[in-house]
């Protein structure tokens, strides 16, 4: 049988999916054991026991100096910024994207402008944000929003213009005004697609967050990683990276579930078109 026609059994598929994760862990264990055998004080690839100690210290022990548990206070600070930035960007993306998509005048006015603005590297304007907004929360949230909103606007505008033109005419023959056309026909069909767009922007959102926290912050997951970097504290950095990855992954799953729950018609309609 040709390779392209060979299908893994369902059970096998699950085992295969786990395999790369196990392989990475095993490789790490081997490399770590070899380095520690050479030099028991090695900090680059700490043993699982050392990492476990660090997790207990960071995630379950109250820090005497601040009176909080570092991992949780970092997580709360970071997620607050991330959700604020993502939320603002999503709102701007939906409103401006739909407006540009449905209104030819606004498309003529802003289409090219948004295209150019979305090419500005967000990290390059981070200094400007720090200068104008200070080093507090506002500049970090603004970086995420500015980094993501232009892409969301363009994506949503594109998806609106991709809608079958028959639907726009049809709605007008049923009596729709520009406003009710948006409210009853465009918006409900764009929302599940907006979730897809936001999902793809979770990665960049974290990138901007960690960058901003690394450069100027007194709390947050990115701040912590870059703080302990000075002590080569890989036993803290590695679980923090794993934790950030897990958070991003959970957000992804939550958005997929939300899309399926809130828009039951969407999966079938997408394949039908």
């Amino acid at each position: 049988m040709r390779l392209v026609n060979r299908l893994p059994a369902p059970g096998w598929a699950r085992v295969l999916a786990l395999l790369p994760f196990v392989a990475v862990l095993v490789l790490y264990l081997i490399a770590s054991a070899m380095r520690l055998a050479d030099n028991p004080a090695d900090k680059l690839l700490p043993s699982f026991a050392t990492i476990g100690d660090a997790i207990v210290r960071m995630a379950f022990t109250v820090d005497i100096r601040t009176g909080t548990i570092p991992l949780w206070s970092d997580t709360i600070a970071s997620l607050g910024r991330l959700f604020a930035g993502l939320g603002i960007a999503t709102l701007i993306g939906a409103v401006l994207g739909i407006a540009i998509g449905v209104l030819p005048y606004l498309r003529a006015l802003l289409g090219q402008f948004v295209a150019v603005v979305s090419m500005v590297p967000p990290l390059a304007i981070l200094p400007i944000l720090f200068i104008t907004m200070g080093l507090g929360e506002a500049s970090k949230i603004a970086l995420i929003a500015i980094g993501i909103a232009p892409l969301l606007i363009r994506d949503i505008a594109l998806r609106v213009t991709d809608m079958p033109p028959q639907q726009f005419v049809k709605a007008q023959t049923l009596g729709a005004s520009s406003w009710t056309l948006v409210l009853r026909v465009v918006l409900p069909q764009i929302l599940p697609r907006l979730i897809d767009s936001v999902r793809l922007q979770i990665g960049p959102a974290w990138l901007f967050l960690i960058s901003a926290e690394a450069i100027a912050s007194e709390s947050g997951l990115g701040y912590r990683i870059f703080l302990v970097r000075r002590y080569l504290a890989m036993d803290v950095i590695l679980p923090y990276v794993a934790w950030i990855t897990l958070l991003a992954f959970v957000m992804e799953i939550a958005l997929v579930a939300l899309q399926r729950r809130a828009f039951p018609w969407f999966a079938a309609a997408r394949t039908a078109q």
Binding site: P164, Q166, V169, K170, G175, L181, R184
Partner: peptide, 29 residues
């Protein structure tokens, strides 16, 4: 406008509304 109705070969109905919702839309709009 609502004085002239249309049925196309495709894309005449709205995928995000139920059958009843699609018909009600004429009154909603």
């Amino acid at each position: 406008g609502p004085d002239r109705g249309v049925v196309y070969q495709r894309y005449s109905v709205f995928p995000h509304l139920t059958v009843l919702g699609n018909v009600l839309l004429a009154k909603d709009l």
